[in-house]
């Protein structure tokens, strides 16, 4: 598995797209930090970008990498390798390459700004952690969808639809429900509904850390009330981890049974 991972990472780090993606984060963070001159505000802006954009890029990269390496996978399947090493190796390679662009693209401007001497390090680290989670979760989801669909246009469309649903439609539906049933106690429902969406979870992870109740929204407030900051952070992180483990397990299962 490590060999496939290393090779995938090597292939991706040489691709122009990884560098463009890295450059984008670099430019964004530099301009936000130096123009804003307020780390907390920059972290919030970055969070909003990260939650929507990182997941989208992970979905696009994940699907494209799978479909582009479809024939190469056949060559690998002819080698003495376990199937799981091929798929999980490639998946980890893509996720790691995306995470590297993110970590360096955000981290370098932060270091230049002198952020490592301020007390916002925990907030900033939480931002990075949430971004890495987004990468690993959405690449895994995209890889799953790609494995189920031989037709690349179909697979790609489903992946984008999934992203649209989780980042935009889910919150809209959630809000409509909350408004229509506002006469009923909805704390438990909203808690569960939030746990089912990795985008909301990442947002809450950062919000809990920043402790900005005004931006937390209804679910964030309920979350904080229910769990408190410490336990809340732990719960959110654990469920985010589950959002990685379950799709990766399915990747393993489906990868073993699929005909190529």
């Amino acid at each position: 598995m490590l060999k496939v991972l290393k090779y995938t990472l090597y292939d991706l780090l040489r691709s122009g797209w990884s560098w463009i993606y890295f450059g984008f984060y670099l430019l964004l963070t530099f301009s936000l930090l130096f123009l804003n001159n307020d780390v907390s505000k920059s972290v919030i802006t970055l969070m909003n970008v990260l939650v929507v954009l990182t997941s989208l890029i992970a979905v696009v990269f994940g699907s494209m990498y799978y479909y582009n390496s479809r024939e190469f996978i056949e060559l690998l399947l002819g080698q003495p390798l376990k199937r799981s090493s091929i798929f999980i190796g490639q998946y980890l390679g893509v996720s790691l390459s995306l995470s590297l662009s993110l970590l360096l693209g955000l981290g370098i401007p932060f270091a230049f700004y002198g952020g490592f001497n301020t007390e916002v390090i925990p907030d900033f680290s939480m931002l990075l952690l949430a971004g890495v989670f987004q990468n690993f979760i959405f690449t895994a989801l995209a890889y799953n969808l790609s494995l189920y669909h031989e037709n690349r246009i179909k697979g790609f469309s489903y992946a984008i639809l999934m992203w649209l649903f989780l980042t935009v439609l889910y919150d809209g539906l959630f809000l409509i429900l909350l408004m229509n049933y506002s006469a009923y106690p909805l704390e438990k429902f909203s808690l569960v509904a939030t746990l089912l969406n990795p985008v909301d979870l990442s947002r809450i992870l950062i919000m809990l850390q920043l402790d900005i109740s005004a931006l937390m929204g209804y679910t964030g407030a309920v979350f904080k009330q229910f769990f408190g900051t410490g336990l809340g952070l732990f719960t959110v992180a654990a469920i985010l981890l589950l959002w990685i483990i379950v799709p990766v397990w399915n990747l393993y299962r489906k990868g073993n049974n699929k005909d190529f």
Binding site: Y7, T8, Y10, D11, L12, R14, S15, N68, S69, R70, E71, F72, E74, L75, G78, Q79
Partner: peptide, 14 residues
């Protein structure tokens, strides 16, 4: 066993 796949398509950047 050596194997030759039908379509030769490899990672582009290596």
């Amino acid at each position: 066993i050596s194997y030759l796949p039908q379509i030769a398509n490899f990672p582009k950047n290596v």
